[in-house]
Design a binder for these strands. Structure first.
Lengths: 236, 236
DNA sequence: GACGGCGATTCATCGGAGGAATATGCCCCG
DNA sequence: CGGGGCATATTCCTCCGATGAATCGCCGTC
């Protein structure tokens, strides 16, 4: 076990053992290094790794603190991992996204706030105006698309689902998604799908929201290149 | 942006840009540090962070390599994050686990291999023998329980689902789960649930496998302490 | 009481040196 | 000619000391 791993494990124990909690401040580098029996260099590597994972937060001139440990923070590193995957795993990732967002939509139908409903409506209207322009501002539409999905995922009320969706369907993934959607009317179809989801949410129709969201995401999924389709038909 | 972040971003670009691929070797510390314009200390912090994320792999005396970037590797850091969450988020995490494993069970019913089916059967028989002993070896039963779920998740064929389940339902999480399951017959009920899932898998019954797995995991979920149940009934 | 400056604290970065583990090429032996 | 063992080179690992940068809190001033 490397020194850095000892640092990671040591801090983990300090948290699980109750010595450190969210928001608490860690001892200064010099003291903590001495306590864990490692040099400051090794300590810094371990602490840095934990900051990348969203567990610690270091502020120059101030100190090192334990984050609030919200799932949102802990899943932020997921995005980097997803981004590094090429098109090969895109279908697998999107299948997970579909599962999570479908569930979130169902949950959201029963508990969405009027404010969130209004905000979602405003986002959809903005997207509609974008599509009416000529030329269409695709970046703005993607932005609205992202925002709509984020509102639904958040209103599901499960922070782990929100965080995972945020990590999987991050900026790079969505851009890659839309880059492959060149079919005519793709954006208009997306807009109609979103509006159908919104109506179900507004009516408190959980099953309707689930089905609409699942259908929408299946639609998106079909535009992804299938790994089985690389080889051409034999045409014997 | 800190020097370490520049290192992380630099390596990310080298991978997404095609300069580096899975299995490729990175330049030696000195050269890479010079190329990125940082000291070896900062470079090491960035590389270390990427190794924790499962993106790089350093071997003393050999060099630093890009991993195969399998989802399994990239999600391994999830486990640490999940472990650091107290009981508070356990329900949210388990709801996600239930979603993923339910889907995996449905997928597995259509594509599970005879070998995996046999292996799962052997695991269940081992678990049954464990329960027949007196006293019951709880650790061994948990081990078999974990193994059964892993086989099903893997046979679903979606590597992202497998990796996420592995990360969420890791060792610490399961131990915490079973520690709270003190009801009489909990293990016997789990065993019967697993056997029902196995029969559905064996029959290629996707819907049956989904329902059985979902019911089983809902059962487990009910044994978790509910955050809403802390306040006693008003009894007016 | 409000504001600004100043010092103390803390993390960020750098450079160098020695140690440990691994891979590699060479030599000797069969 | 093939294979095993050994010395060497390469590479990462760890440590140490020093300087810079950012922040906080105290103190004096207005």
């Amino acid at each position: 076990m490397s020194r850095t791993d000892e640092v990671v494990d040591g801090v983990r124990r300090m948290i699980t053992g109750g010595e450190l909690g969210p928001g608490d401040r860690l001892p200064v580098e010099k003291d903590l290094a001495e306590r864990l029996g490692v040099s400051r260099g090794s300590l810094r590597e371990g602490v840095r790794a934990l900051t990348v994972l969203g567990i610690l937060d270091t502020r120059q001139g101030d100190g090192t603190y334990v984050t609030n440990l919200d799932p949102a923070n802990l899943m932020s590193s997921l995005q980097l991992a997803v981004d590094l995957h090429g098109e090969t795993s895109a279908r697998s990732f999107h299948a997970v996204r579909r599962l999570l967002e479908t569930e979130a939509a169902g949950l959201a139908a029963r508990r969405i706030t009027p404010e969130a409903l209004d905000e979602a409506k405003a986002v959809l209207e903005r997207a509609a105006r974008t599509l009416a322009e000529d030329p269409v501002d695709h970046a703005a539409f993607i932005e609205a698309d992202t925002m709509f999905h984020r509102i639904v995922a958040d209103q599901g009320g499960n922070p782990v689902i929100s965080a995972l969706v945020e990590g999987i369907a991050g900026r790079t993934f969505r851009e890659r998604l839309w880059r492959g959607r060149h079919e005519a009317g793709a954006e208009e179809r997306t807009q109609r799908d979103h509006e159908a989801v919104w109506r179900a949410l507004s009516a408190g129709d959980a099953e309707g929201a689930r089905v609409r969201m699942a259908a929408h995401l299946l639609d998106v999924e079909e535009s992804l290149p299938s790994p089985d389709q690389v080889e051409p038909d034999p045409e014997t």
